[in-house]
Design a protein around this nucleic acid. Structure first.
Length: 527
DNA sequence: ACCGTCGGCGCC
DNA sequence: AAAGGGCGCCGACGGT
């Protein structure tokens, strides 16, 4: 079914409710269409998000020969208009007044591009994963992460002292007095990096920045209280009482996810820094009474993905262990888990310094195909070529109009950086991007299994938030909020879905995709 | 008052 | 301790 430009939110919700669940809905933008459907109590099982699929098909090397790839840029290539409900309501923004796009024409183009692809099965899977991910993103935003505001307040008071009416919290004031005394600068404002750097230098400290990493290497009585001050200042600014009031309502944190928001295919997020929740505040994520949080983490996902892509059987064998790095030690390639971990950084990120650089020759000897795969992606990038993930998401071209006035700072840095730096980007792109594809397949499989579990155990007509449901996603980690009695079923679903994701991407592969699963009351108790 | 950039740092 | 890819967000700051 087609959600046309003129289908209003209410009409769409009614139409979805009136059709069988197996219908695949085709629309321009899941983040615009789906919230109203969910709020009306309906659910979409499958969809096509034309904008997300266009972005993939437009630049994939697997569909480079298609008519779609040669089409001049048009409105389907534009980023979504920012959603501003207040303004929409004020001006009665009506989608009928948005410049007309023909979804049927676009769908035909996309199907043609997919079917004429050099690897249609992979592209079909990639689009299916991206589409189900878009549904999950909206469902997780609407459901929200269960958040105990009182517990969050306790954490803040424990670290900072009581919330001040104005000015700095007590604990920060004490530390600041120590810093000022140690530097003999009674007026120092440590929140200004420029002033702080000058102050440190005037006191004889040989530092060139105020980064904590650099400060830690200096011996001076001001350093310890300053580092602690910076840690608390960061917590207060990023996840303090102000954050709590702005982002947590009705016992739920509702971050907005942006599928495909990162060039590699990872998700980005808007609002509240959902993908950067510091460990300190995770204790405030607490299951409802009678419910549990099931937290699952794909163990060493990127090395396993690299092993599967490159066909490195030795690394696949090392991954038989629940802990791949421990498996690398057992194989005799390296002596310690730390050496294994940092050695892998060389293959995945291109590190050359420190332990990563020292371990590199040994990793290359023990796991030659994995290392060669990363090297080839890096060389391709250095030559200015585009690289492509396992399922078909391609990297942006290095220059050649690859950016415009909307380019982000990060894009500009990449474009203007040297060839080696671009090579590190493409080396990482294929692994990070394929890991993101695995994660979407894992998530999509979980979504279906959770829905079936809920239908059987809670009731076929139970609303989403009364069933076990996804509430949080962090690149290689998923969280489910579930009635306690079903936690063990959720755990099994997590493990089986991980295996299923591996089969979907790689078919028969010796690589095992291990996940760690914890059933907890609080996120802080997950490993 | 507002806007863009920067330094710094949280997460994977 | 950090090394190396990807992000978002904060306050400070300098400009209008």
């Amino acid at each position: 079914m087609l959600a046309t430009e003129r289908t209003g939110a209410v009409g769409l919700a009614r139409a979805v409710a009136g059709r069988p669940p197996s219908v695949r809905w085709v629309w321009d933008d899941t983040s615009r269409r789906y919230p109203a459907v969910l709020e009306a109590g309906a659910r979409v099982e499958r969809c096509v998000d034309l904008r997300l699929c266009r972005a993939i098909l437009r630049s994939s090397t697997l569909t480079a020969g298609s008519a779609l790839a040669r089409l001049p840029r048009d409105a389907w290539d534009e980023p979504p208009r920012p959603r501003d409900r207040a303004l929409d309501a004020l001006f009665e923004v009506d989608d009928a007044r948005v410049p007309a796009l023909d979804p049927i024409e676009e769908l035909r183009r996309q199907v043609a591009a997919t079917e004429s692809s050099s690897a249609p099965d992979r592209v079909r899977l990639l689009l299916a994963a991206e589409n189900v991910g878009a549904l999950c993103a909206v469902e997780m935003t609407v459901a929200g992460v269960p958040w105990d505001a009182a517990r969050h307040d306790e954490i803040l008071r424990g670290m900072l002292g009581p919330r001040p009416a104005s000015g700095r919290p007590e604990r920060m004031e004490v530390l600041l007095r120590e810093v000022r005394a140690a530097l003999d600068l009674p007026e120092l404002n440590p929140d200004s990096p420029v002033e702080l750097l000058k102050g440190l230098q005037s006191a004889g400290l040989r530092v060139s920045t105020t980064r904590s990493g650099e400060l830690r290497r200096v011996e001076h009585p001001a350093i310890a209280p300053l580092l602690e001050y910076k840690r608390l200042a960061r917590l207060l600014a990023a996840n303090g009482w102000h954050w709590l009031e702005e982002w947590v309502h009705g016992g739920r944190f509702h971050p907005v996810y942006v599928p495909g928001g990162v060039v590699t295919g990872r998700w980005a997020s808007h609002g509240g820094g959902a993908l950067q929740l510091p460990k300190e505040v995770r204790g405030a994520v607490v299951a409802d009474p009678g419910w549990k949080l099931v937290v699952a983490d794909a163990a060493q996902l990127e090395p396993r993905v690299l092993a599967a892509m490159s066909g490195d059987d030795g690394m696949a064998r090392a991954g038989r262990a629940q802990d791949l790095y421990a498996g690398m030690v057992d194989s005799g390639a390296v002596e310690t888990r730390r050496q294994a971990k940092y050695g892998m950084l060389g293959a995945i990120y291109g590190g050359t310094a420190g332990e990563s650089g020292r371990m590199r020759p040994r990793i290359a000897r023990a796991f030659p195909r994995a290392m060669a795969f990363g090297e080839e992606a890096a060389r391709a990038g250095e030559r200015g070529e585009v690289v492509t993930t396992w399922l078909g998401r391609s990297s942006p071209p290095r220059a050649a109009g690859g950016y415009d006035e909307t380019a982000t700072e990060a894009e500009l840095r990449r474009v203007h950086g040297d060839a080696r730096s671009w090579g590190r980007f493409t080396r990482n792109f294929v692994v990070q991007g394929t890991a993101a594809e695995w994660a979407l397949c894992w998530m999509g499989t979980m979504r279906r299994r959770l829905w079936e579990l809920g239908a059987a155990a809670v009731g076929p007509d139970a609303p989403l938030t009364e069933r076990p449901h996804l509430v949080f996603f962090l690149h290689d980690e998923l969280m489910v909020h579930t009635p306690a009695a079903l936690a063990v079923d959720v755990e099994r679903a997590f493990r089986e879905s991980a295996a299923e994701a591996g089969r979907l991407l790689f078919g028969r592969t010796p690589v095992e995709f291990a996940v760690t699963v914890d059933v907890v009351d609080s996120y802080a108790d997950a490993t």
